[in-house]
Write a protein that binds this DNA or RNA. Structure first.
Lengths: 207, 207
DNA sequence: GTCTATAGTGAGATAGAC
DNA sequence: GTCTATCTCACTATAGAC
């Protein structure tokens, strides 16, 4: 709460500190959720990563669920920013491929996945969060448009329901193949990304 | 331990009961792990599902980790049985497709997935289990043969490393697309399986 | 071997001083 | 707002009667 005797700049500075700390908490949460499961990540982990006491976390976020939801909402916002930044003249198929490539690049550096894996406890938390669902709908609508356009151009298989295409793209963002190949140590990150993009769009069968 | 005064049939019956109970425990574990994350599944869940006291579980399996590992090893054995049962004259590509279809059918009925999803705590447990790793190697070798054969026949893209093909097939066994589509309620289980098999082998792009 | 009851532990969340 | 210390509760695992 702003004190009347405090100069505006001072308050603004404090507010910036507050926001910066909150940003750091969200960053750490994203990274940790990229490394381990929701249940396995503890509030102590987050507090230690940020370098503050656990109790302080609760001054910013009222629960673990709220913290992780906020982190995912932020990720969704970043996706939106990325999508909006794609050149308008880029063909829809290339936009879709760019999105998958971008998601995989986040995934392979252990940043928080765009979507939780199957059976993740986080999934139930997110599905109960209105902000997350709204953001997801917005992003899905945008991607859905491009899918329909790419199908109209005959570049995406028009016999596949757009929803199936959409989910198949989303699923790349938590694709375990990336982890397998990375653990194998045989390929560079860039190679892994390209291989997964290829199998996603071209399939396994020979063309 | 067998008592000397007990007739063999009686003992055999008791042993069968013991094995049947153990089988029931493994079954319940598989089903529960298909429904929720490893961390979220409690030993109480298993005990309640089987209808025995939690303490009795520990007479059969010394820990949660051992129980779940045993369940996964059993799944792997079932995969081996399925693979061995495929007709020898079936073309390798069809064998691979049959395997994916079979995995998806297990997945869609919420049976335990062949592989844990990304970031699952179960993953660390399994990677420390020798029986599981041995079983996985055996199955992988068999599938790997078929992949190489299918590539030699020009039916699987020969420019894809066999390991990438293998992991891509494995990943179908925990594919979140199945969950998404099933929750959507728009498609039957059989339709979902076929759609995912198609996108796996043929990709999203038009042919 | 099965049960009830409980010990032990770890993590989410809070109290209260500063 | 941040901290230390603590509460509370759920879950793994075990003790001990039958």
């Amino acid at each position: 709460m702003r004190a009347m005797s405090t100069p505006p700049t001072k308050v603004s500075f404090k507010e910036q500190m507050h926001l910066a700390r909150e940003e750091a908490i969200l960053q750490a949460t994203c990274r940790l959720l990229g490394e381990k499961a929701y249940d396995a990540m503890t509030m102590d982990d987050v507090a230690n990563a940020v370098g503050i006491a656990k109790a302080s976390l609760y001054k910013h976020f009222s629960s673990k669920e709220e913290l992780c939801s906020a982190a995912m909402v932020q990720i969704l916002a970043r996706v939106r920013t990325y999508l909006d930044g794609l050149a308008a003249e880029m063909p829809p198929l290339e936009k879709l491929q760019a999105l998958v490539r971008w998601s995989l690049e986040r995934l392979i550096t252990n940043e928080m996945p765009l979507l939780p894996s199957r059976n993740s406890s986080l999934r139930a938390v997110l599905m109960a969060n209105k902000d997350y669902l709204n953001g997801l709908v917005t992003v899905s609508d945008q991607i859905g448009e491009w899918i329909v356009q790419a199908q109209a151009q005959g570049l995406i298989n028009p016999t596949l329901p757009p929803m199936v295409v959409l989910y198949t793209l989303y699923a790349r963002a938590c694709d375990p193949v990336v982890t397998f190949l990375k653990d194998g140590g045989q390929y560079s990150d860039a190679e892994i990304v390209e291989l997964v993009v290829r199998t996603c769009f071209d399939g396994l069968s020979a063309r």
